[in-house]
Design a protein around this nucleic acid. Structure first.
Length: 280
DNA sequence: GTCCCGTAGC
DNA sequence: GCTACGGGAC
């Protein structure tokens, strides 16, 4: 038997509340002041898994270095990774450049506006495609990300656990301001960010909530160390590889395993002397 | 130590 | 469905 989805009895009241919060808690951001497609695109990729304050710090530096899709597509990967330092999840830096190449080669240098087309870009999933369409082009896309999820769980599922995104999506659709989706989604996200800071995080009652393993001692930590080292120093000599990471307690076998995976993923290469360098 | 944040690949 | 993937704030 299908569970009856909770109906927003007073959608007007909900929308009113969202707008009220928005007026009081609007967060100014460079990519909001000027929602040019390139700025929106870069900011949304950065904002995957990375909080707004950190993105705000690094975004202007990245934009100064790579002002548009052409410059990003033509840049060396080492330069991009350098500008990415501090944001984490470095695969995004690779997707970003691959996407820039696709925009240049397949879309005439113009970021597509259709959600389905945006979704074909590497590193762009449902949430990012919807965000880009809404923010860059004011398209009334229907999507869920963490802030939106928080607002709807808080408002419409106060006593529920394990709330599925399937249950939330119809409410997003019904409440969307189709006249001005850009502004509406900014409002939802600012409201969600406010809820995150005030006590319990409603997203822990989402079906999709998962706790992550600790960072210290993880492969993620080791990968981060290796890439950071290569960005700062250019290479790791062959004879230094076995002892690399020893200070943080990583045995040589783990270092080798992580290097191999980074190589397979296209982050780095080995030279004739067996040294490790970033991909050309 | 705990938390936060989407995508890809399986 | 599940898991890998950073790095900083608290």
């Amino acid at each position: 038997m299908q569970r009856e989805p909770p109906v927003p009895r007073d959608l007007d009241a909900f929308q009113g509340r969202v707008r009220e919060v928005y007026r009081d808690h609007y967060r100014p951001m460079e990519w909001r002041a000027d929602p040019a497609p390139y700025k929106v695109f870069i900011s949304e990729i950065m904002l995957q898994q990375t909080q707004v304050p950190r993105v705000m710090r690094l975004f202007p530096l990245f934009l100064a270095r790579f002002p548009g899709f052409g410059e990003l597509a033509n840049a060396s990967f080492a330069d991009i990774l350098q500008a990415w330092t501090g944001l984490g999840y470095n695969r995004r830096a690779r997707y970003l450049q691959e996407a820039a190449c696709l925009v240049r080669d397949r879309h005439g240098g113009v970021l597509p506006r259709e959600v389905e087309t945006l979704r074909t870009l590497p590193g762009v999933g449902a949430a990012t495609a919807g965000s880009i369409a809404a923010f860059a082009y004011n398209v009334p896309a229907i999507f869920i990300e963490t802030n939106i999820r928080r607002v709807f769980i808080h408002h419409f599922f106060p006593d529920r656990r394990e709330v599925h995104d399937r249950e939330i999506l119809p409410l997003v659709e019904q409440s969307l301001d189709r006249e001005n989706p850009r502004e509406w989604y900014w409002a939802l996200m600012d409201y969600g960010a406010l809820l995150a800071r005030s006590g319990d995080n409603p997203n822990r009652r989402s079906r999709s909530y998962v706790r992550q393993n600790s960072f210290r001692g993880s492969d993620r930590q080791l990968r981060g160390m290796v890439l950071r080292h290569l960005v700062d120093h250019g290479s790791i000599a062959a004879e230094d590889i076995p002892a690399y990471g020893a200070a943080e307690g990583f045995p040589p076998v783990r270092v080798e395993a992580v290097l191999k995976r980074l190589e397979d993923e296209g982050f780095l290469q080995r030279t004739e002397t067996g040294a490790i360098v970033l991909r050309r």
